[in-house]
Simulated scan of single mutants.
Amino acid sequence: MLILEEMQARGHESLTLLHHAPSGLKAALAVHSTVLGPAIAGVRLREQDEELAVRGALALSESLTLKAALAGLNYGGGACVLMMPEAGVDDPHAREALFRALGRQVRPLATRAVLTEDIGVTPADIAFVAQETPATLGMNTDTSAITGYGVYRGMKAAARFALGAESMRGVRVVIMGVGAVGRALAAHLHREGARLTVADDRPERAQALADQLSGVDVVSCGSALDVPGDILAPCGFGHSIHSADVSRLQCRLIAGGEHHPLTRRGEEAVKEAGIVYMPDFAINSAGLIAAATGADMNAAAEQVYQIVSRITHVAEQYSKPPSVVARRMAERRIELIGSLGRA
């Protein structure tokens, strides 16, 4: 599918390519919706080519629209995906230059997009952005830790629906991706007595977590989908579960911190397989809530718990998949509040 066709199909408003040669800035800024307010754009930094960066920004920004709407925030959804500069960003001055260049490039868009941290980006990086534009959030918030705790609380609410109880003691959970969010989730689950299996595309990171937490099994990313478990928690970069691999799954619930782990086709395959899927935009919003409202970790995670509980209640009442219910709830708020027009 061509990029403009994909934008039209998803309902995107704009896609901006950013470039600043001296700092090595190459980025794609996608704005999916500003119906509820300026688009909160998660900023990601990783090694990838141009096409992956653009398509990643489009997918992530749509997810952010639904997430903000479902969380009751007066923001739309956006995403800014940075390609890693050829020289890297190990030099602190180079990192400062990269993020200040980003801030200066997006400054004219301040009424449409607000930048906050995502994978590979720290609050300190957003502070650099904030030196060039006022349109930032979260530079004083540990969003990864808060998101991880929110996923844990949301997982408990989803487990009550899918497994019949919200206790994690003895529950087998497979975590795919143990970056900052995955590690935080693992720590909370381990503390409650869950039986954990972890995988990461950097095997040494998974092993380091297993060395830190007793009784944790480590498997390769390629075999993680084959591990028997009650819950599969994708916490990677996106699209961890391909439609063709759904038949390999041996879980009853998919609930994790990763944005768009499944395509729409994958969601259909999961539904046909009888697996409950709690979508990313419903369960991984605690960090966004904290950054946008100033809520502390407990308050933000409790809001996620209540959101997931409301979704599962409606899903049970009307015999609908939670993923369908969650999307409709988000779209309904956008329709209703959007109909009021601009203040």
Score class of each variant (00 low, 15 high):
Gln8Phe: 12
His19Met: 14
Lys26Cys: 13
Ala28Gly: 11
Ala30Ile: 00
Thr34His: 03
Thr34Met: 03
Ala41Leu: 01
Val43Asn: 09
Glu47Cys: 12
Gln48Tyr: 10
Ala53Asn: 06
Ser61Trp: 00
Ser63Phe: 04
Leu66Asp: 01
Leu66His: 07
Ala69Gly: 08
Gly76Asp: 03
Gly77Ser: 06
Cys80Gln: 01
Val81Pro: 11
Leu82Ile: 10
Ala87Thr: 00
Arg95Phe: 06
Glu96Asn: 02
Arg100Ser: 08
Val106Cys: 06
Ala110Trp: 10
Ile119Ser: 15
Ala124Gln: 15
Val129Trp: 09
Leu137Val: 03
Met139Ala: 14
Ala158Thr: 04
Ala158Ile: 01
Ala159His: 02
Met168Asp: 07
Arg172Met: 07
Gly182Leu: 02
Leu185Phe: 04
His190Asp: 06
Ala199Asp: 02
Arg202Tyr: 12
Ala206Phe: 08
Ala206Leu: 09
Gly229Lys: 05
Gly236Met: 10
Ser240Phe: 06
Ser240Glu: 14
Ser243Asp: 13
Leu253Thr: 01
Leu253His: 03
Pro261Asn: 07
Thr263Ile: 00
Glu267Arg: 11
Ala269Met: 13
Glu272Gln: 15
Ala282Ile: 04
Asn284Val: 03
Ser285Lys: 09
Gly287Met: 09
Asn298Phe: 13
Asn298His: 15
Gln303Cys: 10
Ile311Phe: 10
Lys320His: 13
Leu340Arg: 12
